[in-house]
Simulated assay, not measured.
Amino acid sequence: MNPVKVCTLTALFSAFTFVQATRATAITAPPLETQVKQVTQWFTGLFDNSQQVVTNPSVPFITLSSCSVELTNADPRIGTKNIYLEQKSINRFRLYSFSQENSAVNLSIRAFDPNYSVTGLCNRPESEHTLDSSKVLATSCNLELLWEPADYIGNNSPNGCPTSSGGKVISSVTVSQNSIDSLDKIFGANGNLLFATPIEFRRVDSIPEPSLTLGILALGVWGTSKTILGKYKQKSPVK
């Protein structure tokens, strides 16, 4: 082989190896403590799926608000961040706890005592962002969130979490700085898939004020929302 060609190929290979090594170094995952802080920050705020509804009116309009909370009557767990989540029009109220576990961020999702009212918690002064730990159910649904350069990705396939109807729900979630994409696959006791609609939440700057546009949008998805809400009530997951 021509010596010039050999030198050229060697130089190109060395350059390629250097670029790959540099890239690998650049995308090294941050410490788990940093990951927990980052993903909870990205997860906190006000979101809705209005952009998704515009392109697909069969999907119900849903708002999601979340804020950092403190648990009363509980021993603090070092490195754990607790987030209260409130979702409407398909109502869902949960405590999301993010913590360090092995090489990933562990997400534990728990429901509340049915008689414990926490609606609108994130709209209250920050000093009132507290939850009574005795009102948080012990049963949890867990996911592992793996760090990627631009987001955190997790799922609990294939086992999922049990539902009140004897089936299970397998959840997938991608958390980015300004978006949360989630998919709950709900299976019946016989293993048949009952429901699986991905929801694409996007961050909004502030709590939207009632408007004609929002009213028209809500009316447009009301029928579908009511139908899906009925399914959720019949087959609501324990998580």
Rank of each mutant, 00 (worst) to 15 (best):
G79V: 00
Q87K: 15
R124G: 05
S66C: 04
L85N: 11
R94V: 14
V105H: 05
V105A: 07
R94M: 13
V118W: 03
V69E: 05
T130W: 00
T80N: 00
S68P: 02
I83C: 07
P76I: 01
E86P: 01
Y116E: 06
C122V: 10
L71N: 12
D113W: 05
K81P: 00
Q100N: 06
C67D: 09
I90C: 14
C67T: 07
P125E: 08
F98S: 01
N91F: 13
E126Q: 11
K88C: 14
N91C: 12
N73Q: 13
F93K: 12
A111Q: 11
N82P: 03
E70F: 06
I90F: 14
N123G: 07
V69C: 06
R110K: 11
Y116Q: 07
Y116W: 07
Q87C: 15
H129D: 06
I78F: 00
R124K: 13
D75A: 15
L131Y: 03
Q87N: 15
C67M: 08
S103Y: 02
I90Q: 15
T63Y: 11
T72D: 11
F93Q: 12
S68Q: 14
N82W: 03
L64Q: 14
I83K: 05
P125M: 07
Q100Y: 00
L107T: 03
T130S: 06
N73E: 14
